[in-house]
């Protein structure tokens, strides 16, 4: 499951950044890949659809949201946690 989540998150980030999935690593930073705030909102929507989860994210106060998107690896970890919480 973990591998599946990582692969799918990488695919979603790559699609949003319009780059190859191979160019996305856990160390990648979304902003550095060219994903702006609207791109981030779209990526989160894609993640919610892909994993049937709700992601706590408010574009007004991203820092206050309980969702770490500082790197792709952080997003993977957050999605793993949300999947475990919301689909135990």
């Amino acid at each position: 499951m973990t591998t599946d989540i990582r692969t799918r998150v990488h695919e979603i980030v790559a699609e949003q950044a319009m780059i190859d999935t191979d160019d996305v690593t856990d160390a990648s930073v979304p902003a550095d890949l060219g994903i702006d705030s609207m791109g981030l909102v779209e990526a989160i929507f894609a993640i919610e659809e892909a994993f049937d989860i709700q992601v706590p994210f408010n574009a007004n106060e991203p820092a206050a949201s309980d969702f770490d998107y500082s790197s792709v690896g952080a997003i993977v970890a957050a999605v793993e946690r949300l999947v475990a919480e919301q689909h135990p």
Binding site: V41, I44, F45, F57, N58, A59, N60
Partner: peptide, 8 residues
């Protein structure tokens, strides 16, 4: 809601 700019 989709835009994520709404306050709760």
């Amino acid at each position: 809601e989709g835009l994520r700019v709404m306050s709760r």
